[in-house]
Amino acid sequence: MTPVALAIFDIDGVVRDVGGSYRRAIADTVEYFTLGSWRPSLADIDQLKAEGTWNNDWKASQELIYRYANRYGQPIDPNLSYEQIVDFFQKRYRGPDPDDPAQWTGYITQEPLLLSSAYLQSLSQSGMPWGFFSGATRGSAEYVLKNRLGLTDPVLVAMEDAPSKPDPTGLISTVRQIEQRHPEALGQPVIYAGDTVGDLQTVAAAAVKFPSRQWIGVGILPPHAQADADYQAAYAQKLRDAGAAIVIPQVQDLTPERIRSLLG
């Protein structure tokens, strides 16, 4: 079957719900290193990520800590290092032994899945090869793709493989890896589904770099953004403002038929 488009997915907030895991770990980390003075809400974290440059949750945690200190004149331990922030975060997110996936007991084990392997199979059967580009670490991303979804060898570009979004390098690398497996897909339109402003800005940056190709950003509303109608509307508008062609409540609404309709 001749491919009609390449479908690429972010992972956090798209493949898995991270409202009670990654974002909970951010809040835990900030609360700990501000000595219990401040625990950022999901809305606080969303506001930071809407700036488009805080895809890395370790750096997002660090930024929130220092913004709080600057705003309220709160002293921060001068010896506080980025490595300490990462270590604390990882032990909350993965568990006390963050380097051994077989021993993970942290928040990562509790993440609800938002996408099924059957959905991915439906894309393949419709001529839409797929892959993943995520700011998550490779270990974390492979945990959900392989352990939870049962995928054997998915195309994956993770944090260690490319600069942070909105730099388009990782997205372009994902496209090239898919094309290596599916040479018949060379030059076909690219759909990238993500839940943050940075994700959509990445698509726009790829379009600037390779304008002869069709790049389409699809905004996905993460579960925590759907709890309140006004907040959902505001969140969706930010994704549209960042370039989303459409915004949908969950990734599996991006059916093969809907993808074809986006191609024009």
Rank of each mutant, 00 (worst) to 15 (best):
P3K: 11
P3N: 09
V4W: 00
I11P: 11
V15T: 09
S21T: 13
I26V: 15
F33I: 11
T34H: 04
D44H: 08
D44C: 04
I45F: 05
I45Y: 04
D46R: 14
G52Q: 05
A60N: 10
S61W: 01
Y66M: 15
N70Q: 15
G73R: 11
Q74S: 09
I85P: 06
F89K: 06
Q90P: 00
R94V: 06
G95I: 15
P96R: 12
P98D: 08
W104K: 13
T105N: 14
E111T: 08
S116N: 03
S117G: 09
A118V: 10
L120F: 01
G131N: 07
G135I: 01
G139M: 11
V144D: 06
E160W: 04
S164V: 07
K165W: 01
V175W: 01
R181G: 08
P183G: 09
P183A: 09
Q188N: 08
V190W: 03
A206F: 05
A207E: 05
V208E: 14
K209W: 05
F210H: 12
P211Y: 02
R213Q: 15
Q214M: 12
V218P: 02
I220Q: 02
H224M: 04
H224L: 02
D230Q: 15
Q232D: 02
A233S: 14
L239A: 05
R240I: 09
D241L: 13
I248F: 00
P249N: 13
Q250L: 07
E257T: 15
I259H: 01
S261N: 12
S261C: 09
G264H: 13
